Computed example of a mutant assay.
Amino acid sequence: MWTPEDTYAIGRIDLPDASTHGWQVRLQRRGRKYAKYFGDRQCGGPKQSYREALAWRDELLEELDIRQQPVARVCQRSRRNSSGVVGVSKIAVSAANGETYLFWQATWSPAVGQRCCVKFSVKRHGDRAAFRLAVEARQRGIGKE
């Protein structure tokens, strides 16, 4: 059985029509992308290509110092943030019946690699109350309350 640590940033590529079989490592840190492909044929089979991909990924993570010191990004308001609160946004969801529903959504990361999200209906709570509920949920989620 695979664990998330076994497959983190590693994906299997099987494209029989292109005769492409192997493992690919893909990471992005602070806007910079890292990627490398490990072909089964070049590495001596799928098990060996996986081992080489895993070793390369682990070396890269150590080099980037990800495992020892996970650093949380400091979120700041950007031009694209119209709510004025980091992690709170107004979204529109289109239902199968063609109706569009508005929500205020709060998102946060309780731990490295995890993401939480909660939505509050504008129709049910009203615009101001839904926004306030989203802000409060975000604050509770990031532990500021």
Results as ranks from 00 to 15, higher is better:
residue 31 G to L: 02
residue 143 G to K: 03
residue 60 L to W: 02
residue 139 Q to H: 09
residue 5 E to P: 14
residue 71 V to S: 00
residue 25 V to P: 00
residue 129 A to Q: 10
residue 90 K to Q: 06
residue 112 V to Y: 00
residue 44 G to P: 05
residue 37 Y to D: 07
residue 98 G to V: 05
residue 114 Q to S: 11
residue 51 R to E: 13
residue 57 R to N: 01
residue 106 A to S: 05
residue 32 R to C: 01
residue 22 G to Q: 10
residue 119 K to F: 00
residue 78 S to L: 12
residue 23 W to V: 01
residue 128 R to D: 14
residue 103 F to Y: 07
residue 117 C to Q: 14
residue 63 E to V: 00
residue 95 A to K: 09
residue 78 S to A: 06
residue 15 L to G: 12
residue 25 V to A: 00
residue 15 L to I: 15
residue 93 V to C: 03
residue 83 S to A: 02
residue 26 R to N: 05
residue 56 W to I: 04
residue 106 A to H: 05
residue 4 P to Y: 02
residue 115 R to K: 15
residue 54 L to C: 11
residue 98 G to L: 00
residue 110 P to W: 05
residue 21 H to F: 14
residue 22 G to F: 08
residue 30 R to V: 01
residue 13 I to P: 06
residue 101 Y to T: 07
residue 17 D to I: 11
residue 61 L to N: 01
residue 33 K to H: 01
residue 88 V to E: 06
residue 4 P to W: 02
residue 58 D to S: 01
residue 21 H to C: 12
residue 118 V to A: 14
residue 143 G to V: 13
residue 134 A to W: 02
residue 88 V to P: 00
residue 9 A to Q: 13
residue 119 K to P: 08
residue 11 G to Y: 13
residue 39 G to R: 12
residue 9 A to R: 10
residue 127 D to W: 04
residue 54 L to A: 13
residue 21 H to D: 14
residue 77 R to S: 08
residue 145 E to S: 15
residue 111 A to V: 09
residue 119 K to I: 05
residue 38 F to N: 04
residue 21 H to M: 14
residue 129 A to S: 13
residue 23 W to Q: 08
residue 77 R to I: 09
